[in-house]
Amino acid sequence: MAPVLSVENVSVRFPGARGDITVVDDVSFTLEAGQSLVIAGESGSGKSMICQTLLGIAPGAASVTGTRIDWKGRDLLRLRDHEWQAIRGAEIAMIFQDPTAALNPLITVENQIVDAIRAHRNVSRAEARARAIEVLGLAGFPEPEHRMRSYPSELSGGLRQRVAIALALSCSPSLIIADEATTNLDVSIQAQIVKLLRELKDRLGLALIFVTHDLGLASDIGGDLLVMYAGCAVERGPVNDVLTDPTHPYTRGLLRSAPTLKSSRANPLRPIPGQMPKPGSVGAGSPFGSRCPVVVDGVCEVQRAGWTSAGPRHDVACHRFALEGREGVR
């Protein structure tokens, strides 16, 4: 099946005092209709920038370049304003990290959803309202008929995020991007929302991009996993393959430091020493070089690694792995 979304060599740069700062560095991935992709990486690794690029809402200062972002045959890197407008919310919808900031505090839940519907559909207020009740129901928002007259400030954090999900569902998009949609929630509510998103994806046949800095949530979503580090994609493959058989030293380090994962139980808790480099300070070499325990001297500092196959549809960008295979990164 042909992918519905295909991102090819996309970079995002901000102008800095000493030249451009690259915050997304030559990232590529594909996503098929109805499938899910988890993008995981530490805070600041460029995940949100990628998401915003897919909706054309990156900050004005950002310059987005690349070969192509193919969305159902159109190139998102070369769209006019009105073409973007027709896609936003209607074909691709986004759930933001902080529902408190992302929802307008002075407009009722009902009106925010009705506005989103009427931005794309030529329907009466009553019809839009009926649709709002329907999507709020899908998102597990209790008693939508009368509680949708509330303002966001009158709802709990979990309910606000359900409103944001309903908003995303309102125009039946074929792709939903959840950018750390569960990060600000209590753990128990987090689990409910993850479950809800996975169910909605299966039930409505949505494609889902689930962004998280918590690898532990990846297996709950399933599908493919893309691991990001300092703006670069370092490992990609089916979630289960990557989690049970991580091959990039960064992914391995992350899994060792995450106490909840099955694969980590055998190993003692050992967080990766050091810090992710600031954007712009990674030169031509491997972005993980400064923290890598198995760095290849004379190679990793000067040259970025290309993709090497680590299994069916499972790739890793690492010199050590390319040279020595699994033994080298152990």
Binding site: L55, I57, W84, Q85, A86, I87, R88, G89, A90, A93, M94, F96, D98, A101, A102, L103, N104, P105, D115, A116, A119, H120, L167, S170
Partner: peptide, 11 residues
């Protein structure tokens, strides 16, 4: 951010 949301939904 709510303005970015409104934009992201094509208003």
């Amino acid at each position: 951010e709510y303005i970015r949301t409104a934009r992201a939904f094509g208003l």
